[in-house]
Computed example of a mutant assay.
Amino acid sequence: MDRILRRPNEAWLEQLFSAKAVERGGVVRRSVLDVEREIGRERLKAAVLARGFHLVECGGQFIVICNQGHMRVLV
């Protein structure tokens, strides 16, 4: 019954942030096309921001850095 009450794309988002890499403060990535199809850019940005993580887009991929620490781009 809980599944009926949730928006369908929330399960996709929950799966993304339940990855072991997230728990370890690592990195997860998803294709831009998949994100746009499943939840949309703005929903991903909001979810990343709510967790205090960092989001980068490069080469057709979204890279989520699952760490709240200060980030510097070196090159």
Rank of each mutant, 00 (worst) to 15 (best):
L16V: 12
F17E: 08
F17W: 08
F17C: 12
S18E: 10
A19K: 12
A19Y: 07
A19C: 07
A19M: 11
K20L: 14
K20V: 07
A21Y: 09
V22N: 01
V22E: 10
E23D: 13
R24Q: 13
R24K: 12
G25K: 07
G26M: 08
V27H: 08
V28L: 12
V28F: 00
R29K: 14
R29I: 05
R30P: 00
V32P: 04
V32H: 07
L33R: 15
L33Q: 10
D34T: 13
D34R: 11
V35D: 01
E36P: 00
R37F: 08
R37I: 04
E38Q: 15
E38H: 14
R41L: 09
E42N: 12
E42V: 07
E42A: 11
E42G: 02
R43D: 13
R43E: 15
R43I: 11
K45I: 07
K45S: 07
A46I: 01
L49G: 06
A50D: 13
R51I: 00
G52N: 05
F53L: 02
F53S: 09
F53D: 08
F53K: 03
H54Q: 03
L55N: 05
V56M: 07
G60N: 01
Q61Y: 14
Q61R: 14
Q61S: 14
I63K: 07
I63D: 02
V64T: 08
I65W: 05
I65H: 09
I65G: 04
I65F: 13
